[in-house]
């Protein structure tokens, strides 16, 4: 009985409402409605939600799941009503959800190839940025005098959008691809450098004293003491750098790219195919969410020593 009452939620009602939208006749559209794809998607979501509702005992997780999925159902209802059913929105720019899901399904292979291409781009720029910014930040933060000057300079440089540098990258770097990597690099570099420096300056004096009394050498001090002590702060910059990288992905892939999710969206938007462009936008959203999720797991694992 209690389980049955658990099922009587707003989210489940919205799911049924979404399925019932089928009963409302479509307006004539230039693009095909493909409502069945919306249905498949909704059923998949509902299955996930039911599985979570019936298995998890943690109320907080269950609520977050049902609320988020309920919101998605409400959004899909409103979207379907505003497009296919009542044609409130301009159909050229706002295709119905079914059409977008259909485009995703049809293009799934192309999408994966493009996601791969984008991730390689982001990964190269991002890893390069971290590998340079973190040791440099440690060094600059540790040498207080150089560090405070570098702090002001990096704040100034960080305020310039990496997009501004694009023409220079194109002139200076051998390939368009490397220019795109450079944009990703710049997006992650400054926040990581700044947070590493402030992390180093914020390390508790008592921790440093304790390390000194153990007689640690310079290298050990920097990499086994200062680095882990500053890590919580460093992660703030890494997180910021990661999200800025993804935001600038589209701009980076405007530089002569022939692949990548940013290119995919740009390309179809230029040709007026908003169904595909929107499909690309959603896929980017999903990919970024998944990556952020795993990044957070990594972060929690590395900072498991924090209370």
């Amino acid at each position: 009985m209690a389980r049955l009452r658990r099922l009587l939620t707003v989210s489940n009602l919205l799911f049924i409402a979404l399925l019932l939208l089928r009963l409302i006749p479509d307006r004539a559209l230039r693009v095909q409605d493909h409502f069945e794809y919306t249905t498949y998607f909704a059923i998949a979501l509902e299955a996930v939600m039911l599985a979570v509702t019936l298995t998890t005992k943690n109320d907080r997780i269950r609520h977050v799941f049902t609320d988020v999925i309920g919101f998605l159902f409400a959004f899909l209802c409103a979207w379907t009503l505003a497009t296919a059913k009542f044609k409130v929105l301009n159909e050229a720019v706002f295709p119905p959800p079914g059409a977008v899901f259909q485009a995703m399904a049809v293009d799934v292979k192309v999408m994966f190839a493009n996601i791969g291409s984008s991730l390689v781009l982001v990964f190269r720029g991002y890893v390069l940025a971290l590998v340079i910014a973190i040791p440099l930040g440690l060094f600059l933060g540790w040498n207080v005098r150089v560090g405070s000057a570098a702090g002001y300079i990096s704040k100034f440089l960080a305020s310039i959008s990496p997009i501004v540098y694009i023409p220079y990258f194109i002139v200076l770097l051998p390939t368009f691809r490397s220019a795109s990597v450079a944009v990703m690099f710049m997006a992650a570099f400054w926040p990581t450098l700044a947070s590493t420096m402030s992390g180093v300056l914020g390390v508790e004096k008592r921790i440093l004293d304790s390390a000194k009394t153990l007689g640690v050498g310079h290298g050990t001090m920097l990499f086994r003491v200062v680095l882990p002590a500053a890590l919580p702060q460093i992660f703030i910059g890494c997180n910021q750098g990661l999200s800025v990288s993804f935001i600038l992905l589209t701009s980076a892939e405007m530089i002569g790219a022939r692949s990548g999710m940013g290119y995919y969206v740009n390309n179809y938007a230029n040709f007026g195919n908003y169904t595909r462009a929107l499909a690309g936008v959603f896929v980017i959203g999903i990919v970024v969410t998944v990556i952020t999720f795993f990044f957070n797991i990594l972060q929690r694992w590395l900072l498991r020593w924090k209370r």
């Binding site: 921790i207 000194k212 009394t213 007689g215 882990p228 020593w305």
Partner: peptide, 21 residues
């Protein structure tokens, strides 16, 4: 002349590194 490995130290707080078990 400075800290040395001939002297072991225990402080009131923060002798230990929080990121090491």
């Amino acid at each position: 002349t400075g800290t040395g490995r001939d002297r072991g130290v225990v402080f009131q707080h923060y002798s230990l590194f929080p990121w090491m078990n």
